[in-house]
Design a protein around this nucleic acid. Structure first.
Lengths: 131, 131
DNA sequence: TTCTTAAATAGGAATCATTCCTGTTAGGGG
DNA sequence: CCCCTAACAGGAATGATTCCTATTTAAGAA
């Protein structure tokens, strides 16, 4: 069988995504893991992020400032994306609301839900006021 | 004053986005409008889509298969994105669903909401069964 | 253990959506 | 009619992501 072979790099990427609070891009993961694996290739990071996403072990948060961002937290929650600094923060969603969102299944089989709020985070609001 | 000057191309792009049901990419808009404006430049389409989005006359639906998609329908609704064919379909959001999103304001000022369901549309489900 | 096969990887080239740059055109106030 | 500058076309540049190839390596079989 075409089994999935054990891979130290892939395990490290998954562990990193599960550990951190932020929502990393491929490049961020690359720079972070290069400290442990100096020979790490950027292509390896992209390939494994893709595989992990396809296998459902992590999920994509979508593209922010041109870069795809990932999340190792699979629990039901949304994201607040700051248009000023690109920060991505978790947003709790109520049970009822999530059930209501899931109702979109009339178009086919729904396999994922992503709720994105965009705006300015507190820090960037403060900067605006000063400017 | 640095006023915004009248622009036939920008008006045409806005009118097109308001008229169509689909959720076009820049290239789709370009190909469509070139029939009316043979000398239209792709850069002009990108520039105006960006301006229209920034001024809130249209909104971005996010990136699908590497291309950003836009929507001239500003009413509150979500989107179903088919991972098979890339189709984007409107999804009605219930009151409860919308209420669920209200909690995100604690991180700052929320200016936009996007709800994206991903999965396989009916057509692509049928194809899978045949294969 | 040794052999074998294909997955995993590094490194770099290729792709492609999007943005940027430059010279030109044209809207509209004075 | 003049001037300033937004809007534009055309094409070059950018940059995230994917693809390609030679090499390494996991892990089942002999």
């Amino acid at each position: 069988m075409a089994a999935e072979r054990k891979s130290e790099k892939r395990d490290a990427i998954l562990a990193l995504l599960r550990r951190v609070r932020c929502h990393p891009s491929a490049e961020w993961v690359y720079n972070e893991l290069r400290r442990t694996y100096p020979g790490l290739s950027l292509g390896t990071v992209y390939r494994n992020l893709r595989r992990l996403t396809e296998s459902g072990l992590i999920r994509s948060v979508g593209v922010v400032d041109g870069q795809e961002r990932f999340d190792g937290n699979l629990s039901a929650h949304g994201h607040f994306v700051c248009q000023g600094c690109g920060a991505v923060l978790d947003v709790e969603l109520s049970e009822d609301g999530l059930d209501a969102l899931a109702g979109g299944g009339s178009h086919g089989r729904v396999t994922g839900v992503e709720v994105r709020l965009t705006g300015l985070c507190r820090d960037c609001l403060d900067k605006d006021i000063r400017a």
